[in-house]
């Protein structure tokens, strides 16, 4: 565990900095739920709804959790804002890993990356997960959506 924790926290610190400085793609934003969380476990994210569909001009809030085995294991992601999207639980907004490619393949890609000591880019990050979810939303942009701003009851 101690071996795994150092890269995990380094990586998450770098991700946090990227998120707070706004160096990402600009279609999502993310940061720590509690800025004092030294374990980088609980995160908040927002996705700007992709254009030309029901999601246009909406902001979706999510929460993400990075377990001790991140980045070997994917973060668990929940929508806080209500969304009508296959693979997203209507009870608590949980995103089914199998619905989003990068989450489904996360472990496999992580294993592959581990073999390659210096990958040019790191495809696995909270940001790439958010972007993949956004892309997935775009694929289902025609679905009717709950009123903007509504949240799953457990987050109210």
């Amino acid at each position: 565990m101690a071996v795994a924790q150092v890269p995990r926290n380094f990586k998450l610190l770098a991700e946090l900095e990227k998120g707070e400085k706004g160096m990402g793609a600009g279609a999502c934003s993310y940061g720590l739920e509690d800025p004092e969380d030294i374990y980088f476990t609980h995160w908040r994210g927002t996705i700007w709804g992709p254009p030309h569909g029901q999601h246009e001009n909406r902001i979706y809030e999510l929460k993400m959790e990075c377990g001790p085995n991140y980045p070997k294991e994917p973060p668990t992601i929940h929508f806080v804002s209500m969304i009508n999207l296959p693979g997203v639980s209507q009870v608590d907004g949980a995103v089914d890993k199998n619905a989003v490619g990068i989450l489904r393949d996360w472990t496999r890609i992580a294993t592959e990356l581990a073999k390659n000591p210096r990958p040019k880019e790191d495809p696995l990050s909270l940001e790439s997960a958010l972007i993949a979810i956004r892309k997935y939303m775009e694929e289902h942009k025609k679905l009717p959506q709950p009123p903007e701003g509504s949240k799953y009851p457990m987050y109210n």
């Binding site: 998120g19 934003s29 940061g31 908040r44 994210g45 809030e61």
Partner: peptide, 8 residues
């Protein structure tokens, strides 16, 4: 709408 660090 202003967003910082994943929150509105």
């Amino acid at each position: 709408r202003l967003i910082y660090s994943g929150r509105v």
